[in-house]
Nucleic acid binder design. Structure first.
Length: 248
DNA sequence: AACTCCCCCAACCGCGAACAT
DNA sequence: CATGTTCGCGGTTGGGGGAGT
């Protein structure tokens, strides 16, 4: 089977597999546009990449999915939707294509029939609310106000996108139910939330209580002289946040 | 045995994101 | 910033082969 300009398509031969395997072993993974030439293959770069990632890569696990793997796929799909590469990333040795094929031909039918069993004759499948992990940081310039009694500081926290600096630490997953809801609001698109923190001493250091929805992040401090926070920034560990607090 | 149907999975395609110039 | 190139992902297709008749 030959395509435009004689580029081969369709099933791979053993000889082609060997050429591709030798090429990747010699030059490493990546730079796929160079692979057809380097390997001496009459295939397009996409075909080479796919063949390696889905079939030839030594770490790929062969054989049927175990019950544990199926269970994990169902849970992850509920959380992530059709984001096969993310799901496969949590299943060592399984490719996105494997997971997708398995879902479409086996698991999906099982899940649907289970739902129908549970819901009796209800045929409507509820829309999956997907929490999409994406890099988020909190803006440094938070607004704040101080209550004299009780001595509390209210801090407004805002989401930013991608303006990372190196002084972050991961956000501790909250255990308090109200805190979870509050932070979920933020992650679900709310522009800002307000949280309260007790003031500690004259030169206030912003400290986290145990199980608070954040951790102290390095050198941030309340600057009395300038009346502002020195450095206040957080990362949200979205994966663990979702994983631990989303009911599956 | 011959034929049809259907399932499974490897591979392709199109598109958006990321990167390079 | 604009444009071109490459990468990576998800949806879809099609052929091989097993099951059923």
């Amino acid at each position: 089977m030959e395509g435009f300009l004689g580029v081969r398509k369709g099933a791979w031969t053993e000889e082609e597999d060997n050429l591709l395997r030798q090429c990747v072993e010699k030059y490493g993974e990546g730079k796929w546009h160079q692979v057809p030439l380097r390997a001496g293959l009459n295939r397009c770069r996409k075909s080479c990449r796919l063949r390696w990632l889905n079939y030839l890569k030594p770490s790929i696990k062969r054989g049927g999915f175990t019950a544990d793997e199926v269970d994990l796929i169902i849970r992850l799909h509920k959380l992530l939707g059709n984001r096969w590469s993310l799901i496969a990333g949590r299943l060592p040795g399984r490719t996105a294509n494997d997971v997708k094929n398995n879902w479409n031909s086996h698991i999906h039918k099982r899940v649907v029939s289970c739902k129908e069993e549970v819901k009796g004759k209800a045929k409507q499948i509820t829309k999956i609310n997907v929490i999409r992990p994406r890099p988020l940081t909190f803006k440094k310039n938070v607004s704040w106000s101080i209550n004299p009694s009780p001595k509390m500081v209210n801090i407004e926290v805002q989401l930013g996108h991608g303006d990372n600096d190196s002084n972050h630490s991961a956000l501790t997953v909250p255990s308090n139910e109200d805190d979870i809801l509050l932070w979920k609001d933020l992650l679900n698109g709310k522009e800002s939330i307000t949280v309260a923190q007790e003031l500690k001493g004259p030169t206030t250091t912003f400290m986290a209580e145990e199980n608070a929805p954040w951790t102290k992040t390095g050198d941030h401090f309340f600057d009395d002289m300038h009346g502002c926070w020195g450095d206040l920034s957080f990362d949200v560990d979205l994966w663990n946040f979702s994983n631990q607090n989303t009911k599956l």
